[in-house]
Simulated assay, not measured.
Amino acid sequence: MKAFAIAVLATALVACTTTPTVHTDFDPSANFASFKTYTWAMKPQGGSPLVTQRIVDGIDARLAARGWTQSPNGDVALAAHIVTSQRQTLDTFYTGSNMGGWGWRGGGWGGGMGMGSSTTTVRTYDVGTLVVDMFDAKSKQAVWRGTASATVPSSPDRVNATVEAGLDRLFASFPPGSAPAK
């Protein structure tokens, strides 16, 4: 029973630490210093409209902090998408320490076997991914892409914290070539 309680606690701690995994890529020939305005070509859709609005507001705030302004005919067109998928893990917990092992057994060296048991639990969880693409509005060429993925928490407060953490990490070194944001 003690092993089961420890396993549940460990699983709960892992579920609480959903640090988003972030990847960015950009066109090295793009002149980000020339971009000052942007327009939303496609706002993210799906999921909670409140979370979607927080994502849009969060991106707007981070771009404004870098001197960009939203404009109907911006230098850069933004397209954002939200994708969710279900994943599963198998957690196996062993009880009893009767696995034996090799060693001296009265009459000589040998292996021992004992009775032990295991319990396997299937855990299903959702993973959310935000994809943000930026295109040069004049050339229609892609200039930047960022993705942030994390396990979707069950409480709205944790969802909002995960969104904020993902956006912070996504735009930490934006625009490319700039010093990381603090």
Rank of each mutant, 00 (worst) to 15 (best):
Val83Glu: 14
Ser34Ala: 13
Cys16Glu: 02
Val22Arg: 01
Ala137His: 09
Lys140Trp: 00
Thr95Pro: 00
Phe35Lys: 10
Trp109Thr: 09
Asn73Arg: 12
Thr37Phe: 01
Val14Thr: 05
Ser154Ile: 01
Lys36Ala: 15
Thr95Tyr: 11
Val122Met: 09
Ala79Ile: 04
Gly110Met: 12
Leu50Glu: 09
Asp57Ser: 07
Asp57Leu: 03
Leu63Cys: 10
Thr11Gly: 10
Val76Leu: 07
Val131Thr: 14
Asn160Gly: 08
Lys138Ile: 08
Leu170Phe: 02
Val127Asn: 01
Thr11Tyr: 13
Leu50Trp: 07
Val132Gln: 00
Tyr125Ser: 05
Ala181Tyr: 08
Gly116Arg: 07
Thr37Gln: 00
Ser178His: 12
Thr24Phe: 01
Asp60His: 04
Asn31Ile: 09
Ala10Met: 14
Phe35Arg: 11
Ala165Ile: 00
Asp75Ala: 10
Thr121Gly: 04
Gly166Tyr: 02
Ala172Tyr: 04
Gly103Thr: 06
Leu9Phe: 05
Gln45Val: 14
Met42Pro: 05
Thr19Ala: 11
Ala148Glu: 02
Lys2Trp: 15
Thr69Leu: 03
Gly116Ser: 14
Phe35Val: 07
Asp60Asn: 07
Val132Thr: 01
Lys43His: 06
Met113His: 10
Thr24Gln: 03
Gly177Thr: 12
Thr120Trp: 03
Pro49Phe: 07
Asp57Phe: 00
Gln88Phe: 08
Lys2Asn: 14
Ala15Ser: 11
Pro180Gly: 10
